[in-house]
């Protein structure tokens, strides 16, 4: 039986989704001969810590603070003191400086602990530094969940397509903006109305700027450029134009000429902008779906489509990274 002691840092939507998926797949993991023992769940103001294992069912039900294992110690202390085998860094992203996730990841790696993360900002800002730190300490840093939610784009390339040289990558990497553009196309409505609809469905934040201004897509473009195209770039190197100025008339005109307008991350050119995609093209996916198209020298075009967000969907990528580290 292989086992790993895991500390989850950040118990919001993604953290809870991971805990749920772990509960759901308990039997399968046992059959696989893997025991994943959650020894700590860290939040902003303290942590649940139990070396024998946290009761996830209980943690999912109530407030963490009210539980008997609650302690006021913060994540960095938990990492140093308890030295888990794997740190799951699932705090929200912050593209200004990558914190607090960046500090957590550095702390874990420099303590010889492998990291699995869904936090895009630290990788989009400091990819090379973090990968070198992982290599120097002989541990792994896995980040499949940072791009495309459940879509296994990074592992697909690194595990099975590595012999191919990638010539270009185009991606619809933000479900919210794709939902908004699809609604504008299907219902001939303006951007504001489509955003409102997305907000009502819980697909957009009250301030939708991070999604519709292309920031989220740019962060993912930076990660893909580093991890799949070996480019040493930061999020700040990406040229970004969002969808705020796309009018219903432009969408109508595109439709008339056989195109959809999509917010595309053009990884090869380090650019995010609204682009014309031919109707019926593999990238012409609607709703909140994500899609990534790789153009490679040997395998040629490969397109992968799936759900780019959602707690339980993202947990699929996180679990797959954890299992790869456990071996």
């Amino acid at each position: 039986m292989k086992s790993a002691r895991i500390a989850i840092i950040g118990f919001g939507v993604i953290g809870r989704g991971f805990a749920q998926a772990l509960q759901q797949k308990k039997k399968y993991l046992k059959e696989l001969g893997v025991e994943l023992n959650i020894i700590a769940v860290c939040e902003v103001d303290g942590s649940l810590v139990n070396e024998k294992g946290i009761d996830l069912e209980k943690a999912l039900k109530g407030e963490l603070k009210k539980q008997s294992d609650w302690d006021s110690i913060k994540a960095p202390v938990v990492i140093e003191k308890h030295k888990p085998d794997i740190v799951l860094e699932l705090t929200p992203g912050n593209v200004k400086d990558g914190e607090p996730g960046l500090g957590h990841i550095k702390k874990a790696l420099s303590n010889g602990i492998s990291v699995v993360t869904s936090n895009k900002a630290p990788l989009a800002l400091n990819y090379s530094e973090l990968m070198s730190l992982a290599e120097d300490n002989n541990v792994k840093l896995k980040f499949e969940a940072t791009v495309g939610g459940a879509i296994p784009i990074i592992n697909l390339y690194q595990n099975t397509l590595k012999i191919n040289e990638i010539r270009s990558i185009y991606g619809i990497l933000n479900g919210t903006s794709n939902f908004v553009l699809s609604k504008m196309d299907e219902e001939a409505i303006g951007l504001d109305d489509a955003v409102k609809e997305a907000q009502e469905l819980g697909l957009a934040e009250s301030d939708p700027g991070y999604d519709i201004d292309g920031i989220d897509t740019a962060v993912k473009v930076a990660i893909l450029a580093n991890s799949l195209m070996n480019r040493k770039v930061s999020f700040r190197d990406i040229k970004v134009k969002g969808i705020r100025d796309v009018t219903p008339e432009a969408i109508e005109l595109a439709r008339k000429h056989g195109y959809s307008i999509k917010l595309i991350g053009d990884v090869g050119n380090l650019e995010v902008s609204p682009r014309l995609v031919p109707k019926g093209d593999p990238l012409d996916v609607s709703g909140s779906l994500n899609a990534v198209m790789l153009d490679t020298d040997i395998a040629k075009d490969i397109t992968i489509v799936g759900r780019g967000a959602g707690a339980i969907e993202t947990a699929s990528s996180l679990l797959s990274d954890v299992l790869e580290i456990v071996g």
Binding site: K241, V246, I261, D266, S273, R275, L276, P278, D281
Partner: peptide, 8 residues
């Protein structure tokens, strides 16, 4: 002007 170019 906003430029929306084709991916083709």
């Amino acid at each position: 002007l906003l430029l929306i170019s084709s991916i083709e």
